[in-house]
C-alpha cells in the first residue's frame, strides 16, 4: 500500500532579500528513497531543514502524511510535533548519554520503549553497545546509532543530510547498502540530501536535481529515476551533476551529450581524433580525445586492446545521439563572439 508521505507544493525561500529556492514541488511515497542532488550552496540543506521545521519557507506549503505543516510562511506544526526523523551529517549524538539513552531519547517514558531500543540495536547490528558512550564508537557505528535514534519514534519520514560525508570512503558503500536495507524493512519514506552523484544514483528510487540554471535561485532541474536522469538528462547542468560527461557542440543549436562509456576509440592513422591524454583507472583507460568539434572523455576497457599512446590518431565511434539544449551561459558567450 503506497501513500504519499511528504509533499512539497511550490516551495520558495528567500533569505535577506534574495531568493534561494524557487517553486519546488516534490513528493515522497511509502518505502521510497528520494535524493536531492545539488552542488554546495544550492540550498538543498535549507530545503531539508524546511521539512524538519527549523526553517520556515517564505511561500508554498509542505504536507506530512496528509497534514499541512507549513503554509505560505506560516508554521502550522512545530518541529517537535512533526514526527520526522533526521540524520545529521556529523550524527549529532548526545555525547553525555549512552548509546541506549541516545536511541531512547525520543520515546522515553513511552511503554515498550526499552524493547524498541533493543530491537533497533539489533537492527543496526550493535546489540552489545547499549552502555557505550558515543565518543568511543567508530564513525560507522555512530552513524548507525544516529539512524536508530531517528527511527525510534517511528517517524513519518526520514531526512538524511549528507549522511555519508563524514565517513571513510571504504565505509560509504557498505553503509549505503545497509541504510537502504533498513529503510525498506521499516517501510519508511526518506529524503536524502547529497552532493555526491554516485551516492544519489546508487541509493535512490528517484533523484531530484536541485540547482541553478542561470545563476538565479535553485529549482528542480529534473526529477526522475537514476537511470532517467543519467541517461536522459534534461539539461547540460543535470548531465554534469549526475556523472562524467562530455558535450560536443556541432553548431546545430544543441549539444551532444556523451557519457564516457558511450563511445569507443579505435586507432587509425587517418582518423580525425587525437589522444590528448590518457589515465589508467583500474580496468579501464580514460582517454581524452580531441575531435574537431571539441574534446570527448572516453572509457576504453583494458581487455579489448592495447591502450593508445598519447598523440596517436584514430576514430571515435559514438553509441548515442542524445542532445540537450545549449545552456544559457554558453549561448551568451557565443553571441558576444559573433
Amino acid at each position: 500500500m503506497e501513500k504519499i508521505l511528504l509533499e512539497l507544493r511550490s516551495i520558495s525561500h528567500s533569505f535577506g532579500g534574495s531568493t534561494v529556492l524557487e517553486d519546488l514541488t516534490l513528493s515522497v511515497q511509502t518505502g521510497e528513497l528520494v535524493s536531492i542532488l545539488g552542488s554546495s550552496g544550492s540550498g538543498k540543506s535549507t530545503l531539508l531543514r524546511s521539512v524538519a521545521g527549523f526553517v520556515t519557507p517564505t511561500s508554498g506549503s509542505i504536507w506530512l502524511a496528509g497534514q499541512n505543516v507549513v503554509s505560505d510562511g506560516e508554521e502550522r506544526i512545530s518541529p517537535e510535533e512533526r514526527r520526522v526523523g533526521m540524520l545529521f551529517q556529523d550524527f549529532a549524538l548526545f555525547p553525555h548519554m549512552t548509546v541506549f539513552e541516545n536511541i531512547e531519547f525520543g520515546i522515553r517514558g513511552q511503554s515498550g520503549a526499552e524493547r524498541r531500543v533493543d530491537e533497533l540495536l539489533e537492527l543496526i547490528g550493535l546489540p552489545q553497545y547499549g552502555t557505550r558512550m558515543p565518543p568511543s564508537l567508530s564513525g560507522g557505528q555512530q552513524q548507525r546509532v544516529a539512524l536508530a535514534r531517528a527511527l525510534a519514534p517511528r517517524p513519518t519520514i526520514l531526512l538524511l543530510d549528507e549522511p555519508f560525508a563524514n565517513l571513510d570512503s571504504s565505509l560509504r558503500a557498505d553503509m549505503g547498502r545497509e541504510l537502504v536495507k533498513i529503510l525498506k524493512r521499516e517501510e519508511l519514506g526518506s529524503l536524502l540530501v547529497t552532493h555526491d552523484c554516485d551516492e544519489a544514483l546508487g541509493l535512490s528510487d528517484r533523484i531530484a536535481i536541485l540547482d541553478t540554471a542561470d545563476g538565479g535561485p535553485s529549482r528542480f532541474l529534473q526529477v526522475g529515476t537514476p537511470e532517467m536522469v543519467y541517461r536522459n538528462p534534461a539539461s547540460a547542468e543535470v548531465a554534469a551533476l549526475t556523472g562524467r560527461v562530455s558535450f560536443l557542440d556541432d553548431g546545430s543549436g544543441s549539444l551532444r551529450v556523451i557519457r564516457p562509456e558511450e563511445a569507443e576509440f579505435s586507432v587509425s592513422r587517418s582518423g580525425v581524433g587525437r589522444v590528448l591524454d590518457r589515465r589508467y583507472r583500474g580496468g579501464v583507460w580514460e582517454l581524452m580525445i580531441q575531435l574537431p568539434e571539441g574534446k570527448v572523455l572516453v572509457d576504453q576497457p583494458e581487455r579489448s586492446r592495447d591502450a593508445p599512446e598519447i598523440g596517436s590518431m584514430g576514430n571515435l565511434h559514438l553509441f548515442t545521439d542524445r542532445r540537450v539544449p545549449v545552456p544559457q551561459s554558453v549561448r551568451e558567450c557565443r553571441n558576444e563572439s559573433h
Binding site: R49, A52, E81, F105, A146, A150, P153
Partner: peptide
Amino acid sequence: PEAEEEAARSLGAKRWARFLRLTIPR
C-alpha cells in the same frame, strides 16, 4: 552544536525538555 539541539527537536523534545536533558548535563 546546533545539530544536537535540532536532533532533539525532531525527536519531539520541547524547550523545557531540551533544557533538562541536553543543556543541564552539558
